[in-house]
Every structure is written in structure tokens, then in C-alpha cells.
Write a protein that binds this DNA or RNA. Sequence first.
DNA 1: TTGTATGCGTTATCAT
DNA 2: ATGATAACGCATACAA
Lengths: 362, 362
Amino acid sequence: MFKSSRYCLNSLGAHLIIKKPTIDDVAALSSVGRTTVSRVLNGGQNVRDIVRERVLAAVKTLDYKVNLQARSLASGSNKVIALIYSSNLESEPNSYYHSGLELGALRACTDSGYQLQTHAINQDSADYYDKILRIADKSRFDGLIISPPFCDDIKLLNALIEKDCPFVCISAGNIAAKSAHSIGIDEEMAGYEIAKYLLRLGHKSFGYILGLQGHISAQQRYSGYVRAIEEVGIEVKDQILERGNFTFKSGIEIAQNILTRPNPPSALIFANDDMAAGALFSAHKLGIKVPQDLSVVGFDDTPVSEIVWPPLTTVHQPLKAIGQQSVQILLKKMSGINGVEIPLQTIVPFRLQIRESTSGVQ
Amino acid sequence: MFKSSRYCLNSLGAHLIIKKPTIDDVAALSSVGRTTVSRVLNGGQNVRDIVRERVLAAVKTLDYKVNLQARSLASGSNKVIALIYSSNLESEPNSYYHSGLELGALRACTDSGYQLQTHAINQDSADYYDKILRIADKSRFDGLIISPPFCDDIKLLNALIEKDCPFVCISAGNIAAKSAHSIGIDEEMAGYEIAKYLLRLGHKSFGYILGLQGHISAQQRYSGYVRAIEEVGIEVKDQILERGNFTFKSGIEIAQNILTRPNPPSALIFANDDMAAGALFSAHKLGIKVPQDLSVVGFDDTPVSEIVWPPLTTVHQPLKAIGQQSVQILLKKMSGINGVEIPLQTIVPFRLQIRESTSGVQ
DNA sequence: TTGTATGCGTTATCAT
DNA sequence: ATGATAACGCATACAA
């Protein structure tokens, strides 16, 4: 850390030292033992009020601040939780998605006196597994929050478990959710609901655009969609199915491709908002009117869905709340001697957010 | 930190210990002194190759990882730099702006073996000054990167200087830039250029929408605009001037207000892309065609400007490069005994990014 | 209620 | 080239 010039008093009296004051300085100034100062600063039990006030006064006049490094070294706890999210450093994929999560987690951390540490990992890099484990080893934190697609890497999860590293998954897929604590919406149901909505509007031909492989939760949305259309007797194999990478750009390209085919579908369902925004873009380029000629829906309800024209119909996912609750679960998990009481899965409600990118088929 | 079960060898032979291996374990296993292990792990000077290999082998078999807490406690350096940015926790204002900065800074940190620590501070909160100073005191980092509007708080900057906390400002305003290291584009010139461009297209009536107060660099863009239009004899006082808060929503409201007045201007200039995107939204709602009936320009060239329809003409600011260079400057500043050689201001080039939201006036 | 002594894991100093 | 030993700043048994 940077050296801070500060005037300290040592036991011999006023003295100039170019250092931050330590707990011993406070102890000396308030004429108590080091332990008492520590007591006052932490729990605060078993200290006479007079003494406490003296210590607090010394803290104030010296402008003393605990050295967190030293504290964690001595106590074995750091008061920091880490959040791992995917990013490829070249683009800002899903920037708003992560912002929501991070903001929520940050708030919960602040409330509990924890720091939040974020790590962006390139999901395309072959060694992301090693990178994450290295972070778990080197960067000292008390608990870990893992978002897709890393939370679906069972091998990674098991390695973390073996290390006794407490973690919680955000939107873990059905496999990971069986063995790890996770929080998220009912993805399958969300996919089902949005398809149902489109069906109610009279749509019969669909294009479904998946996200990056490995994002199991996104895959489950697709399962829900399949269930819904099969329910009304529509053949899944007759519908268009493509895979994007969650970026706006991939949405543009895929939509362009689909919409220039002979008999394009009347509704396009995207695994996230960014790709759906890309479809809107392509529709504009091609002179296709949304929602008159084409209905488009996204997923997540990130700010993007309100920024585009027309505003996007999507599935609202309470990202901030998810981020917030994820640290609460983590904290509980870390403190709990008997981790039995915490449910493995926490399901938060989603909501169909109907805007102007969808309408009945002509 | 979480406790990691691990098998360690102590000097008496194979032994089961529920702890991470320490430097002493490595020393014991490789039959050298603790200091030698430290040497190998760090600089690596003055160690025989045979010994070095033995140590490295021990490190590998024990899966030893340095305890960063202990290292920084002993060395006084943490190898982490912090980035402070504004956020109000309720919305995701300028999310892409910060992502760009963060991604660039992260890359530079990674390259230099540093960690990046980010702190979101609510710029609306009255005590953000105290909050930042508290972060500087408690959270141990070696250097600080400050983005607007905090980098324009001279009082804050001075407090940091007094603490001997090395920092560098992103897009500092002209006042702060005089006394602190900063990096950014020539804001005044950028404002001048975009106004010039609009002028060349034949526009004669403008609406300029400022950002949040306190963002001096954004204010300088306005000065550039003023210079440009005065140059051709257009009266500034006849032009519309409003103030937004950088959010999409404020852009919607302000544009709605301006565009429903009797004689709306033919061109709208916004202090950032998000607000300009809001104007596009309002124009759609009002049935005003962009760019045929109205030209709209933004600032920054964040991904938002490509997502909206029509794509936004804006001023490209190399945010990632700025983030990257900011840590390089900081690192240089921290290492340099004689900080004389680093220029106080680093100006990076901007670029007019012409897209489809602007055209000649009818 | 308060203080003493020891340990946390590493780097730095100074011998050898 | 290598190794004792002393910090680093704090928490925590344990003693008083």
C-alpha cells in the first residue's frame, strides 16, 4: 500500500514517524493493552465504558485505521467475497447483465461489511478452469459467487468443493443445481411462458436462437419453449433453430440470415436481450416492420430492452435481487456450522415483460 | 479465507495437516532456508540452478501458493490497483462506459501482475468524499484510478495527495488536470469537431444537452460546441440548452420536451450516447424521422450507439485504451523515484464516428 | 475486566 | 550463494 505520512505518538511522547498508526500506538495513547483496543474495535464485549471511550478517542486523534491485511492474516478471515463472471475482454458481452448482478451483490456486501471483488474470466480461453482455481488459491476471499457458464462446469465445482471453498451459483443448470447451492429463476418455465404468450398471439412458426454452448440455464429456456409448442401440436423439427453467442452482433447476423429465407417465421425468440436487439436492427435494415410483420422477444430484461426501438418484449429476471441474495446465501453458508438448513436451490420469480416488439400475427 | 485441506510434509516426515502449505513447508521439503525459497519465488537472483529447481519441484508437489496477505504485510506492497467509478446503485447509468474503462484497466493490470479492484460510489450521496477516503484508508491498494465526476473534486484530490496516495484521473476537467496526472481526449476539441460537422451539414439551430453537473470534461465539450457555432456567427443564446443526468430516461424526457416546442432545432447534441439513445426513442414516439427531420449525435461511442436505430453518430473515445494507459501511467508514477518525467496530461485521439442518425438539413 | 505472549506467512536485514 | 532472525500489524488463547 502507499505509505501514508502521519504523526504518531510513541510511548516516549510526541514523536514524528512516517508511518500509519498501528494498534499499539492507539494502545499506548489510551494507556491500555493492545488486546483491549482490539476488543473495542471488534466485538466490544467486556470493556468498561470509560476505557472504551478513551480508546475511541485515541483512535480518532490518531486517525487510526485497521490494517486489513494484518487482520486477515491473524484471524484467517478476509471479509471479502468474490464474483466470477465471463467476459472476453474484446467485447462487452452482456455488460448490463453482469452490472445488474454486481450491483446487487455489492449492495449486500456493503450491508454486511464485506468487500466485493470481481474477476472477469474469458470463457473462450481454454484454461479458464485453471485461471479460476488459481484465483481461488491466490486471491484471498471467504466465498465465491459463480455465474454462467462457469457455474455449469461440474469439474470446476467439484474442485472448489474439494478445496472447501464456499460458493454459490447464479442460474446454475439442472445438473449443477443438484450438487451446489444456486439461485435463479425457473428457466424452463420462463421459456414455456414466453412461448405460450407467442402462441396466444396466434404465432405458429418460430425461430429460436440459443446462446453460447455450456450455458445450461439458457438451454433450459429452450426446453420450456419446446414443451409449449409441442403441447399445441406444433412440430419442433419444422421450426428454425440457431445458435448465437449472446452478442448484439451475432443477433444481427442470425436474424439477417433467417429473415432472408423463403418463408421466415413470424416470431423470433432469443436467449438474451442483446441478440434480440440485433434482430431489431436487421429487421430495420430489411424494411421488415416490428411487430407488424415480425415479433421479437428477448430474455433477461436488461436496460437494452428499453433502449431499442420498438421496446422489447422479454422475460424479466430480477438480476439485482439475485446478486443480492446470492451473497446472503453465501454468508449463511459460510457462517452455518450445520449447513443443512439452507435449501440447495433458491428460485426467484420471473415476469413476462410485454412491450412493443410483439403483436398478433396478421 | 476458506481453509483448504492439504497434505503437507513437515520436517519429521509425512504428516497430515489441515492447512495450506507455507513457505516453511517448501523450505523443509527442498532442504533450504526459508529465505532461499522466497528468493526463488520473487526476483530469483543469486540462487544456484540446482537449488532453484529443487525449490520449484517442492512448490509443485506441495501445490504451494503464496499468501498474498502475508506478503503485502511484510513487503508493504499489495500489487493491487483500485478503480473508482460513479454509480447510483439504482440504475446502470453509463454501464458500457465503465465497462470499457474497466476492461482496459483490467488488461493492463493482468499484464503487470496486478489485481484490479473496483469500487462503485454513489455520486449523489452527500458523503461520497468520506467514502472514497475511507476506501483509500482501509482497502489496501497501491494506486488509484479515478473517473468522472470524482476526478474533478479538487478537495478530494488534495486529500489524496496529502495521504501520499498515488492516483491518476480519467478525463479530468481542466482544473484538476493542472495539478494531477490525467488521461483522456481533448474534450473541447471533440465538442468543436462534432459541432463543425453538424454545421457543415447545414444545421443552424441546435439543442445541446449537458450531463450531470460536476463532470467538467463534459462541460468542456460544450465549450467546444460554443466556439464552433460562434465562429460562424450563430448566437449561442438563441440555441436550446438543457441538462440531463446521462441516463437514457433523461434523454427521453428532455428530447420529448424539446421536440414538442413550436420551432424545434434541427440537430440535438447530447453529452453521452445513452441520452442520445433516449432522444431517438422520443423521436420514434413522436413520429419524427431521424435523420430526415432531425439529426441526433451522442458522445463516447459506447456499444449503445450501435444498438439503437438508427445507429448513432457520435464521438469515438478509446475507452479501453484509456483504461489501459491509466494503469500504465499509475504504475510508472508509483515506481518512479523522480516523477518528473511523466507528463501531467496524456491526450489520446478521438474520432468522429459518423453513422446514420445525422444528415443534411432539408 | 484487562493484559501478556504467541502465532499468522511472508519479506528484509544482515551476517556468513 | 545461503540462512538465521527480526519485523509487518493484528487476533486470540491464556493468564491475571
